[in-house]
């Protein structure tokens, strides 16, 4: 019999080549689904508003999440705080399709992440580099995304994280087998995971881009850098024309290698979300949970 981990990795495989959109209401969820989202992330406030509001940010009201589950037929994800396994238990109890143990919310534990192997529902976690990604996978994450810098509309951090992961993967691939033991020690992960990356040239789970994606060009950039799909948070519903932008980003992810199509998609999209440059941010969410 195949275990839950395999089935949960398999669901992430079905999301590949797709766009996962942050939504705060059933109405937004329906817009996202109609625009071609492969899943939605249900949350009370999108990252840009969490950033603006400040204070402690927690799991969303289960009733609000259930409203979104009833509104759409695509998978529904929701966020819990890093280390807050009871919030995760609640999300499992309402049969969420994927839990995002997310640095966008205020961390509940500054040492331990959730022991995700204890759950039947799958988890996606953020990572800035290969070591973080493999540590989360070792804890039971069945999907990885870059951390990026959520709610900024600035793609620089997602690019940095994706480039870092890809370059570290290439480094592992080029190593001789006896060097892998030392690499495992440095990355602080089990040898078996390092060996998998060495042999396959990729993570053992699906790897998406997240954080700061605001345009079809941003999405295609992340795909060309090696992402297998894209999360878009504030970028859609903080823009001038959410429906058009959502559809354009979906199509840009499918045709990410085709500049002619992306050029057409980029026309007349209206206002993009107002961005905040990396240097202007007070709070670096990507630094939460390592």
């Amino acid at each position: 019999m195949e275990d839950r981990t395999t089935l949960n990795r398999n669901l992430a495989q079905m999301l590949k080549g797709g766009v996962i959109m942050d939504v705060t209401t059933p109405e937004q969820a329906r817009i996202a689904e109609a625009a071609g989202a492969c899943a939605v992330m249900a949350l009370e406030r999108i990252p840009a508003d969490i950033r603006a509001a400040g204070g402690v940010s927690r799991m969303s009201d289960p009733k609000m999440i259930k409203g979104i589950q009833e509104a759409v037929s695509i998978p529904v994800m929701a966020k819990c705080r890093i280390g807050h396994f009871v919030e995760a238990q609640i999300l499992e109890a309402i049969e969420i399709d994927y839990i995002d143990e997310s640095e966008v919310l205020s961390p509940a534990d500054d040492v331990y992440h959730i022991d995700k192997r204890k759950f039947n529902v799958p988890f996606v976690c953020g990572a800035k580099d290969l070591g973080e990604a493999l540590r989360r996978i070792n804890e039971g994450a069945t999907m990885i995304r870059t951390k990026g810098e959520p709610g900024t509309g600035d793609v620089i951090q997602a690019v940095r994280h994706m480039r870092m992961m890809q370059s570290e993967i290439r480094r592992l691939v080029s190593m001789s087998e006896d060097e892998l033991y030392e690499a495992a020690k440095q990355l602080r992960v089990p040898y078996e995971l390092v060996q998998y990356v060495h042999e396959n040239g990729k993570l053992p789970v699906v790897n998406f881009a997240a954080g700061g994606v605001a345009t079809p060009a941003d999405a295609a950039l992340m795909m060309q850098l090696g992402a297998e799909g894209v999360f878009v948070g504030s970028g859609i519903f903080k823009s001038g024309d959410p429906v058009k932008r959502a559809q354009a980003i979906v199509k840009a992810v499918t045709n990410y290698q085709n500049p002619k199509i992306i050029a057409e998609l980029s026309e007349d999209l209206g206002e993009a979300m107002v961005g905040i440059n990396e240097g202007e941010i007070q709070l670096l969410m990507a630094e939460r949970g390592k």
């Binding site: 079905m14 999301l15 590949k16 080549g17 797709g18 109609a34 071609g36 492969c38 695509i74 979906v250």
Partner: peptide
């Protein structure tokens, strides 16, 4: 994959 995404 997701049939709604593919249909779109």
């Amino acid at each position: 994959g997701e049939s709604t995404a593919m249909m779109r």
